[in-house]
Design a binder for these strands. Structure first.
Lengths: 334, 334
DNA sequence: CTGAAAGCGCTTACAG
DNA sequence: CTGAAAGCGCTTACAG
């Protein structure tokens, strides 16, 4: 509407648009603008309640100071916190964040990439979905800075910030073994994403080393059928000949429903069944049992993702940075 | 970088920019462009992998197709879901959403309003903070469409979408009364936001009608000191002469810590203490007791907020719409 | 040292 | 009916 522009200020003060722009951007040093003119410009700008139009600026300078964030499942607490921190850190760089959600659909991820591209985001932070490798590699080809977060594709020449899932899972499984479990199960998602496979690998190696590995105890859950698959998996495990005495839940969404099922069946944790979870659930607060879990450094993940992206945007090189953070076990019984 | 523009297509096909723009926007009907030219343009656009620059478009048409969403506390599950739905519905209108968080600070809310304004958002959806009335009224004065969500300021001429907090709280308190509670406490935040005061009012009226009102049983929590104030409040209630037998928790963040405290003290729910909560917490899933709670229609709140804002944006009137939805009690014991 | 002009990529009112 | 031109608000390279 009655948007005040640089032109209005220039007119009122009686100088050129350029001079106004220079002063308002603090670039007066080069073109030694008289102090009076400068202060007069600032005065009028305030008086007219001038606010710069970032759209125009972006169009001109070719940078939008906007990050496109694509999250696989924003209803998951872990990702929601991640989004929160990314926003906080981006703000420090004076970047805005457009958050979108794919609901684990690679088709939607592709669509979101295009939406955000057409809005001229300067870079992407993406938690990719399964089968999304093609979309990511196309994005890379278009030479827009990208950082993958939490999940990654080992073969793609792209920066990422992840947690060492293998080690975390190794530790978690070893904890159950050290607590005396002989038949340790794994509930994980049935997908081919490397981070999930590495959680499986950590689990397997720990058990193999202890001579306790039994492939029958790995249950794979279909993401879109969790409310059906998880109780079924738990029930199946309880019917195993070798009494299952430990479970490693590979994600917090799985642990949520898994623990719920155990409680429904009146199985006492940790007496009848010892468990370890990947990520904390809010729900832990509530229960009076202390459940060991793998704590990912969410804040650091967010910070690093933003830092790496900013480097990519600013130095305009085509190198890539791979960052791996370590997760730690919490609530370990003494 | 090698961004393909309308000009490139025009040049290659040998027509004007205008023609290309018309065709690509499906506005060929007016200016009867020959079918061959149209299809040739589309062909070349695809071939060059053309993607429109929305920034330029926005600058020209004066609409950014972007909503600024300002949330008071994104770490709260209720608001996170709200943000999620708003995004989903905005997408249907081909609007993007820039989500920002104020952490309940009105100073930050003011800052965020300016950041989003300079990015030329077409409208705002805001969950305002306490003491934020001035910022909101300034925003209204600048004639940008605004919808307040979940919270509101009764005196301000601005659209809002809220839940009838009074009725919900009346129902919740009556439930406790009907279950036989004689001394019903309220844990609420210590602020002057109308939605909070209405929750208090519903609580009070129900108890007054039943001749059970006792102002000593209202405990006000300082938002930034919840981990200290909530256990203290619970402990104080338990020392009341008249044995407190029911508690109404006015928000899910309060209920989370409140229930945790009760469990630490080994107070059995609902035998020793009956409770009702405003909003569901994920944590409920976990516990094997069924806790009655007020379910707000989160999805509808999000949908309505977007619908109202879109109307405001499109019809450019200065009327305002006040929408009130009803919440319902769930998990009510028979 | 400083102002006038060009141009970012798009759309639309207007002249031919 | 269609193309050439203007202009959204800004910044910056360039001429004076």
């Amino acid at each position: 509407m009655a948007q005040v522009s640089i032109k209005d200020i220039a007119q009122k003060v009686g100088v050129s648009n350029a001079t106004v722009s220079l002063v308002l951007n603090g670039k007066e040093k080069g073109g030694r603008i008289s102090a009076e003119v400068a202060s007069r410009i600032r005065e009028v700008a305030k008086e007219l309640n001038y606010e710069p139009n970032n759209l125009a600026r972006s169009l001109r300078v070719g940078k939008s100071r906007t990050i496109g964030l694509i999250i696989a499942d924003i209803s998951n607490n872990f990702f929601a916190s991640l989004a929160f921190y990314i926003q906080e850190f981006a703000e420090k760089y004076e970047y805005a964040v457009i958050i979108t959600n794919t609901n684990e659909s690679s088709g939607k991820m592709g669509k979101m990439i295009n939406v955000l591209k057409s809005r001229q985001v300067d870079g992407f932070i993406i938690v990719p979905t399964e089968d999304g490798e093609k979309h990511i590699s196309e994005l890379i080809a278009s030479r827009i800075p990208v950082v993958l977060l939490d999940r990654y594709f080992p073969d793609l020449p792209v920066s990422h910030v992840i947690v060492n899932n293998y080690h975390a899972s190794l530790d978690a499984t070893n904890l159950l073994i050290n607590l005396g479990c002989k038949n340790v199960a794994l509930l994980m998602y049935d997908n081919q994403l490397p981070h999930m496979l590495e959680r499986q690998k950590g689990y397997e190696e720990a058990l193999k080393k202890a001579n306790l590995f039994n492939p029958r105890l790995i249950k794979k859950i279909n993401y879109s059928l969790i409310t059906r698959d998880i109780p079924e998996a738990i029930d199946a495990l309880l019917e195993e000949e070798q009494k299952v005495d430990g479970i490693f839940f590979a994600t917090n969404s799985i642990s949520m429903l898994g623990i719920k099922r155990l409680m429904e069946l009146h199985i006492t944790i940790p007496d009848d069944m010892k468990i370890v979870c990947f990520d904390k659930s809010d729900a832990f607060e509530f229960s009076n049992i202390s459940i060991p879990y793998i704590q990912q450094p969410i804040k650091d993940l967010g910070r690093k993702a933003v830092d790496v992206l900013m480097e990519l945007i600013n130095q305009d090189t085509s190198t890539f940075t791979k960052i791996e953070l370590f997760a730690h076990l919490l609530n370990v019984p003494e």
